[in-house]
Write a protein that binds this DNA or RNA. Structure first.
Lengths: 346, 346
DNA sequence: CGCATTAGTTGAAACCTTTCAATTACCGAG
DNA sequence: CTCGGTAATTGAAAGGTTTCAACTAATGCG
């Protein structure tokens, strides 16, 4: 019987408003609003009548209208740098936990490392009057972020440190992380170490390298920098080729990679070329993503508290949004080295 | 000089509206709207005056008000099943490509395999009056999806096939995928094959197993089902333990895993236990996520056109949202087997 | 019984944008 | 100089919700 003209299946029927509900329940529209927002002020009988009417009509609150009235939405957003890097999806989970707890919606956007896309999203989010924005920016010093803050949209920088005047930030001490990685390798007796990473325009890469250099200072060990053009598995493989090409006598006996994707690529290349890990090359990654532990030679890695990072960032954002006497702060987490087979002493 | 009472840094200044812009530019608010929406109907002089006023005031369009007027937002959403599975993030990228092209915002939500969270998101999205929803549902036969459609919100099921009456769907032929995997193993001469996967409540698992069984029918080869309680790396490791525990004489010589996470876990366990891959156990995964090729023994896997899946789904959704004579369709993509070292003939 | 109080309900105003019919200003043709 | 026509601009209305001052009805107390 479901003919095309059956009105019950027509798609463009305006969805019912509070007014419709009010009419059907025989009350004023103010009362319907009270049922929704202050049910205690409505008599039992009226409330159930209104609720019945809502159910009958299939009433769904119009969020746009609410927001318009309220001037603010109950949504926060996370603009992530690279959705294909598990590190960031884990951060997002932490954010989501906090958002859920505060009964806020979370809008996730992926800038995919492109400044233009990031800008487009920021503009849209501002138009939506989101309560606040969490962002791992392509360029943490870009003035558009400060502008957002000054326009009244709270911004929290995640995993970078931005302009400390205008927003909170949550990051992990990458210098310390670099130091931990190198100290671990020094403890194992390595004296020729490679740092695999790049480009150096990325703040994390710089900091981790700085930490590495700091730990090496004064020791007799040497550091070779093997440059990569991105933090990806493919670039890790390519770095592996270059390392393998070095004469055995001068080849590093250990490599510290700027992130786990690189480390996984490097590891794969080593196995393919018959370079024993950790015997001929010990490898330390960074981030401790789940795939690091699951690699065929489980990867030693510097773990960052990813979920906490996200959760804390979200909490700071919500504080800034709701708390009048909020003060910006820069939270710095401490990384931890997780030793696994890829650096096992043999 | 930045005292707390400096008005320029006060946070609660109402952001300027078209009215404010109109006043400042000395025109009516209708004209401001024309500048925004039909600039060709405004004289050169007026337009630049208005644009100047907007810049001076830092005017940002209020999306809520636009939506309220329009009755619809220009946002679509993807409710993904598991943000930590790279397969879904790749699907999301495809969706994003299509959304960007159509100049739509994309709202990404992660149900994290939890029905309650999924329900919460669906409700919120409906309240936001999104243009449409893409979803990889926890339970594709759940009536709430049909209800959404009937309420006027287009819904497209991604990577599952739902109720074909009420929505489009885009999926990959999992029965064929299962068949491809097994045929590949049969070609290599395997006669004792394990299927690693579960729970069977997941449609994909069922279909892939069905395909596997179909390919085996009539051949002399046998199939052992190694059950898992989830499609995760950890479960893959556990399955590996169980396979390793079988007496060598009856142990399968090949394993077909319901997805790559399982396969990676299985592979890792095999390497740890000294079971040669592919010599003693050949492994075929499913999804061909990037980490599959990057595994220490690169993984043979059944590739799904993830990005196309996402893109197509988004296109169907947009068609349904804009095209009056849209007809629901079920698109079925064809998977491809990608052979790598984990099944290399030795 | 009348007054004060409370509980419950009402209706208008405000939020900001877009649309569209109506108006004004201007120009050229007759 | 007037008429017709076009280009530019205007102002009011609509869209759905929330808030709040104002109102009504009911209750309790003296």
């Amino acid at each position: 019987m479901a003919t095309g003209t059956d009105p019950s299946t027509a798609r463009s029927v305006r969805s019912p408003s509070v007014k419709d509900v009010a009419t059907r329940a025989g009350v004023s529209l103010g009362t319907v609003s009270n049922v929704l927002n202050r049910p205690d002020r409505v008599s039992e009988a009226t409330r159930s009548r209104v609720e019945k009417a809502m159910a009958d009509l299939g009433f769904v609150r119009n969020e746009s209208a609410r927001q318009l009235r309220a001037g603010r939405s109950s949504t926060i957003a996370y603009v992530m740098l690279d959705a294909s890097n598990p590190f960031f999806t884990d951060v997002a989970q932490g954010i989501e936990d906090a958002a859920e707890q505060a009964d806020m919606s979370l809008f996730i956007c992926n800038s995919d490392n492109r400044a233009s896309r990031e800008a487009r999203y920021l503009q849209r989010l501002q138009q939506q009057r989101v309560t606040g924005i969490l962002i791992t920016p392509v360029d943490p010093s870009h003035p558009s972020l400060d502008e957002l803050s000054r326009h009244g949209t709270p911004v929290v920088i995640v995993d970078r440190v931005g302009n400390t005047e205008d927003h909170c930030s949550v990051a992990v001490d990458d210098v310390l992380g670099g130091r931990l990685a190198i100290e671990h390798l020094l403890d194992l007796g390595h004296e020729r170490i490679a740092f695999v990473g790049g480009p150096e325009s990325i703040g994390q890469v710089r900091d981790r390298l700085d930490g590495a250099r700091g730990a090496l200072a004064g020791t007799g060990a040497s550091l070779t920098v093997v440059h990569t053009s991105a933090l990806s598995v493919a670039e890790g493989r390519s770095a592996g080729e270059r390392i393998a090409g070095l004469p055995r006598s001068s080849r590093p006996t250990a490599a510290f990679c700027a992130n786990d994707l690189l480390a996984l690529g490097l590891l794969q290349q080593c196995v393919g070329l018959g370079i024993g890990v950790p015997d001929q090359l010990a490898i330390v990654g960074y981030d401790d993503i789940d795939f690091a532990a699951a690699a065929a030679v489980p990867l030693t890695s510097v773990r960052q508290p990813r979920r906490d990072l996200g959760r804390t960032a979200a909490e700071l954002l919500l504080d800034e949004a709701t708390n009048a006497d909020h003060e910006h702060q820069q939270v710095l987490f401490t990384p931890v080295l997780v030793a696994r087979a890829s650096t096992r002493r043999t």
